[in-house]
Design a binder for these strands. Sequence first.
DNA 1: TTTTTTACCGACTAAGTGGTCGGTAAAAAT
DNA 2: ATTTTTACCGACCACTTAGTCGGTAAAAAA
Lengths: 204, 204
Amino acid sequence: MDKNLKRMATMHRMQVTGLELFYKNGYYNTSIDDILKSLSLSKGAFYYHFQSKEDFFVSIVQNLVVRKVYSLLIEPIEGKENPVLAIEKCFENALETAEHNEMDFGFILSNFISEFNGKNTVISNYLMDIYKVWEVNLISILQKGKSDGYLDRHIDSEGVATYLISSFMGVRTLMVKGNCRNLRYKYMQQLRHYFKSIAQKEVA
Amino acid sequence: MDKNLKRMATMHRMQVTGLELFYKNGYYNTSIDDILKSLSLSKGAFYYHFQSKEDFFVSIVQNLVVRKVYSLLIEPIEGKENPVLAIEKCFENALETAEHNEMDFGFILSNFISEFNGKNTVISNYLMDIYKVWEVNLISILQKGKSDGYLDRHIDSEGVATYLISSFMGVRTLMVKGNCRNLRYKYMQQLRHYFKSIAQKEVA
DNA sequence: TTTTTTACCGACTAAGTGGTCGGTAAAAAT
DNA sequence: ATTTTTACCGACCACTTAGTCGGTAAAAAA
């Protein structure tokens, strides 16, 4: 473990820069040379640490993307009392991050899912796995929300989760043109409308 | 006009095949040679009709994509009495088309918007123009829906349009993995929930 | 001290890439 | 009948791509 420190450090640097460029320019539109140039490293270094461009990308997904999705989209809602408030807060946060044009990993996910669809099943599968983890966690907090009386017992948790993820991914796609602040505001307003429609109906 | 028939026919064939391949493999991952091979045409034919790969793509957007977005996403809701029902029907239709894996131009739009974001501003602008036309038309039918008493007068039509387009684009991104039928069903169910929350409140 | 392993270098290759250009057969214009 | 234009061919060019490979300086192991 100790002796691997340098190895790990270099690999990590490559992965971070790789994700940055892949995210910015797309996988097929980013060459390994681009990444190496911006790190002042050589081809030899790359193929010493990774077997291929695909292997490299998979390692980025498994090391960086998975963890970020967890910390930004899953952990913030896990174990919270009120799922509606938790999800609202979490989405608003993520969209705000996106505004200051740091990487928002919900979008990175949908972005790459689009790019690899039909072109690379191996990578597509890794990406869909992350999506599924996100979905499962949303579903379980929604279920708990039903038991705890925050959500109408008749709603379909899976449907709600799908709808939430869809709208989030969609609004992020739209945010690529400017006007992010306004888009976020409008989106959050309608999200609250939607939540109202699936909230626990007050007993009259 | 008559003498241009052959010219037009060849250009159209190229555009149709081009869109098919660009949609399937992405713009940067589809070479002109790929398109020409599948048409048994030569480089000379291509550069006789189009100036460049970019010029070619723009012509596809302006000829094929614009028209399809109109006929599939705008005309079906234009002038309808009840905007809620019209939009529901229109979206359901588009998602069903997508299931039988024909091209769904709402998705094509979001797909290409993602791909060209930050890479090619010229093309990005053409794509955003189409999105804006779609948005404007949704807004105007929602406004009319308010006047006609189908929608709560307090809702923000722009916000609703944004939210509708977002969720649609998002669910289409998710539909790339199988299970489309189920996704569509869940999506439409939640869309109806949402519509309930912005419908005209009955006077008590 | 000698040997081996680690982490990296950079020239090279084969297969594309978008784009150019001289040519040409058939149709249209003269 | 002759000329010109149209619509296309395909060899070719400069360049980029992912991936290979022989080499090497420094560190670790022996």
